[in-house]
Simulated assay, not measured.
Amino acid sequence: MNRPDEGTHFGFRDVTLGEKQGLVNDVFHSVASRYDLMNDLMSGGLHRAWKTIMVNTLNPPRNERPYALLDVAGGTGDIAFRAARASGKGFRASVCDINGDMLAVGRERAVKRHLDDRVSFVEGNAEALAFPDRSFDGYTIAFGIRNVPRIDLALKEAYRVLKPGGRCLCLEFSSVDVPGLDRLYDLFSFRVIPELGRVVTGDAESYRYLVESIRRFPKPAAFADMIRAAGFSRVNWQTLSGGIVALHSGWRL
């Protein structure tokens, strides 16, 4: 069992586990209203293609068969909305996020997209989900797992709430593996992204943390081992865009 005073990291800073969640919350309170715009600017729109690949891989049923998705750390609803549009009438999604400001943005977007009857929003912690065992067919988390203080607990919770035969998909930034692109990527990340954050949201420090947190996240093989340790089977991953992101998959059998 992890202790609140146990050490971890917040970007390149060393902090305690007890401190990290509050610091992460402050980041997303600060950037919630411009979060999706910043995603477009930071990725040149590529995040849309990555999320489409994630939803296509999830492959929710297109008929009336009931299907329940839990999208964690997905406050603004991006993944849930894409999955709802790609599925049939039996699809329902619960978006769970620890940040109320992000959820407020998501609820507004759901109403505007006429998806509020199929996508619901719940404030909660990825490390202690308030859902029954074996209650979801799919679990997704996009660009959120690296912000969880205790990643191992979040993965165990993902396993717990999935039905047998359910699939967990995790889309996260990874390690660029193309010579030359890695240096350009570092330059863009550390010089351009914080400045974009300052101009668009008035907050450079939050985006400096987000860039640093990517560098502290486990490499794909190490993260795959963590998914296996949580109980998942048939674990694999694919890298996208030269390794900028990786899509990880695991099944509860």
Results as ranks from 00 to 15, higher is better:
residue 220 P to K: 01
residue 240 L to I: 12
residue 12 F to C: 07
residue 228 R to V: 06
residue 189 S to D: 01
residue 65 R to S: 10
residue 166 G to H: 01
residue 224 A to P: 00
residue 90 G to S: 08
residue 47 H to P: 00
residue 114 H to Y: 14
residue 42 M to Y: 09
residue 13 R to D: 15
residue 66 P to K: 03
residue 181 L to M: 10
residue 140 T to Y: 04
residue 64 E to H: 12
residue 233 S to F: 13
residue 251 W to D: 11
residue 5 D to K: 11
residue 99 N to L: 05
residue 236 N to G: 15
residue 177 D to Q: 13
residue 245 V to S: 00
residue 163 K to I: 04
residue 63 N to A: 12
residue 31 V to Q: 03
residue 23 L to C: 07
residue 77 G to H: 04
residue 252 R to T: 09
residue 175 S to W: 14
residue 147 N to M: 03
residue 243 G to Q: 05
residue 232 F to V: 02
residue 39 N to F: 01
residue 165 G to C: 10
residue 44 G to V: 03
residue 114 H to F: 15
residue 19 E to Y: 11
residue 124 G to T: 06
residue 77 G to S: 10
residue 20 K to H: 12
residue 111 V to F: 14
residue 177 D to P: 09
residue 119 V to Q: 00
residue 243 G to N: 02
residue 53 I to S: 11
residue 163 K to L: 10
residue 227 I to Y: 01
residue 61 P to K: 06
residue 229 A to T: 11
residue 79 I to V: 15
residue 242 G to R: 05
residue 1 M to F: 13
residue 198 R to V: 06
residue 147 N to S: 10
residue 182 D to K: 13
residue 86 A to T: 03
residue 214 I to T: 08
residue 97 D to F: 06
residue 216 R to V: 05
residue 252 R to A: 07
residue 3 R to K: 15
residue 145 I to S: 01
residue 66 P to H: 04
residue 240 L to R: 07
residue 116 D to H: 05
residue 104 A to R: 12
residue 117 D to E: 13
residue 189 S to W: 03
residue 76 T to C: 00
residue 161 V to E: 06
residue 234 R to T: 12
residue 187 L to Y: 12
residue 167 R to Q: 10
residue 17 L to C: 08
residue 215 R to Y: 15
residue 26 D to I: 01
residue 125 N to Q: 13
residue 41 L to C: 04
residue 66 P to S: 09
residue 237 W to F: 12
residue 126 A to K: 05
residue 165 G to R: 09
